[in-house]
Design a protein around this nucleic acid. Structure first.
Lengths: 192, 192
DNA sequence: GGCGATCCATACTCAACCGTATGGTTAACC
DNA sequence: GGTTAACCATACGGTTGAGTATGGATCGCC
């Protein structure tokens, strides 16, 4: 049973709207975030929405901030607990590669970078992650000047892969090929 | 003199509309491609537009095809004339890095990957470019299995860089830093 | 069990755009 | 210089989706 099949709804909170918004963004992109569509999906009407939020923008803003804070705790938090700096990067690569679900919102927001509201959020998130990669590379033994550029390169490769694979469906790649690709990335980008 | 300042217009052709559309896409994205807005910018009204094109989609389609064919001749054509396979890839990297203007439409289309019309175009273009990289890496001495993955990695880095730099304005980087980044890419991705 | 706060439905307005209908204007060519 | 085809303006209809107004329903709580 999917999300929309909950006829036994009680009353909604602002949080419910934000989570539903994030779901819709992940599946259909920011452009599909319409209040009437969301209301239908939640089994209510606009009247409900405009009680919780002043405007559509306000909902998008709240949803983005929620997503940003969640990602802060969840995504980066886990990785930081890998002690050995040399194992941290390969492990990070492999985990990211096999937990594609959390990246769906990020990929959707990547397609929505023409919306002025998402730009600052994505800028902050991406900046933080690149800094994370930077220190990881330094701790793995790369000189400072190289570490930053390697971090940029790595993160660009991540972003580009999301675009090409998720959104564009390219390259058409199967499981084994994908694993080989990940290992190739590790061999190419991480210093021995 | 920018594009919009041509009050002494005579009559327009379909090509004029397509070029104007590509301009608008490059600057404001596919979502901003509205026929009335375009007409205003060209100093005419919708009446003109619907003589040249049956629908808005038809214009977008024509503009995309024009862009695709142009890129075929221009972008890839020049690089193929570099004889030495070992010099070809570094040269390609450096040229791409310093001719950012032609990449603006590509970056804009990257943001518009939720439009069903642009997906096949981008898929074809990206596929062709990755194949180009693949053979370039093989000719540079990389074994076939590695060459394809390296091509994927390289192109993903390119796409991601466009997104992070053009659209997101990240990383905040100056000219010298940028050159250093390009050289770092060359050193990391191209086999010695 | 009634009362105030919270939550929602219905019924609008308004603006943006796409597309159509139709008549007018300019260019080209004989 | 008159006719035809190419090009454009004006006015309209239709749709979509945001936001407002207002009254009704429901919950918490004394």
């Amino acid at each position: 049973m999917n999300v929309s099949s909950k006829p036994e709804r009680t009353r909604l909170s602002a949080e419910d709207w934000e989570l539903a918004a994030l779901n819709l963004i992940a599946e259909q992109g920011v452009g599909a975030l319409a209040v009437e569509a969301l209301a239908r999906q939640l089994g209510v009407t606009k009247g409900s929405f405009y009680w919780h939020f002043r405007t559509r923008e306000a909902l998008l803003q709240a949803a983005l901030e929620r997503w940003e804070q969640y990602g802060e705790r969840e995504v980066l938090g886990q990785i930081e607990q890998i002690a050995d700096p040399r194992k941290r990067l390969p492990e990070l690569f492999r985990r990211v590669a096999h937990e594609l679900q959390p990246h769906r919102v990020y990929a959707a927001l990547l397609k929505a970078l023409d919306h002025p509201q998402v730009v600052p959020v994505m800028a902050r998130v991406s900046q933080r992650r690149m800094e994370f990669l930077d220190t990881a590379y330094r701790e793995a033994g790369l000189p400072a000047a190289q570490a930053l550029n390697r971090a940029r390169l790595t993160y660009a490769a991540y972003v580009g892969f999301l675009q090409l694979n998720f959104t564009l469906g390219l390259p058409r790649i199967n499981h084994e090929e994908f694993d080989a690709y990940v290992e190739h990335m590790i061999a190419t980008l991480i210093p021995a």
